[in-house]
């Protein structure tokens, strides 16, 4: 009898390992980080790229229903790719976009904006990357969409694409 119970237990363990492993195989292993949707934005403060005296913080996000924080740099090629969508978003004037200029040189950043346009209402400078960690970012470009309570509504890792643009517009229009 004891033998049969032992057998049964081991049998069940083997079968359940099969189940777990085969389910585990189905899980997408392509890097998909946890997104912080629903969480409140953490406090941050970054000196303005134009004037070191002025600090850009979570309190800079006011007077609008929606905000977006966009992390970018002049040296990052995908940032150029997404720039037209940022420009479009800012022209539609539905939300306020705050830029975080990531590990960049001031004059390169300004040249970049002169060339491609400036969609940002304010730009903070992140000299050593620590602010991007404060914001919970993984790399650049990355965009975080926030509502008026500064809750994270959506997070876009990598350059904004046409679909992402449509999604942003949809979220804002539905509210």
């Amino acid at each position: 009898m004891i033998k049969k119970i032992q057998f049964g237990i081991l049998f069940l363990i083997i079968i359940s390992l099969f189940y777990f492993f085969s389910e585990g195989l189905k899980i997408d292993k392509i890097f998909s980080p946890q997104k912080n949707i629903g969480q409140k934005l953490s406090n941050f403060s970054a000196p303005s790229i134009f004037n070191n005296e002025i600090m850009i913080t979570q309190d800079s996000l006011k007077n609008k229903k929606f905000y977006m924080i966009n992390i970018w740099a002049s040296w990052c090629a995908p940032c150029r790719e997404e720039h037209p969508y940022l420009m479009q978003l800012s022209e539609e004037n539905l939300l306020k976009i705050v830029g975080i200029n990531y590990k960049d040189k001031k004059n390169y950043a300004i040249t970049f904006l002169k060339k491609f346009g400036n969609p940002y209402s304010e730009i903070g400078s992140d000299k050593n990357g620590a602010i991007s960690i404060d914001l919970g970012a993984r790399g650049i470009p990355e965009s975080i969409l926030l509502d008026d309570q500064k809750n994270i509504v959506a997070q876009f890792i990598g350059p904004l694409k046409k679909n992402d643009y449509k999604k942003i517009i949809k979220i804002i229009k539905n509210k």
Binding site: F7, L10, F11, I14, F18, S22
Partner: peptide, 15 residues
């Protein structure tokens, strides 16, 4: 899936 099934087959066989 193939190696897993083979492994499980061998484990059950030896059990």
């Amino acid at each position: 899936i193939f190696i897993l099934s083979f492994l499980i087959f061998l484990s059950l066989l030896s059990l």
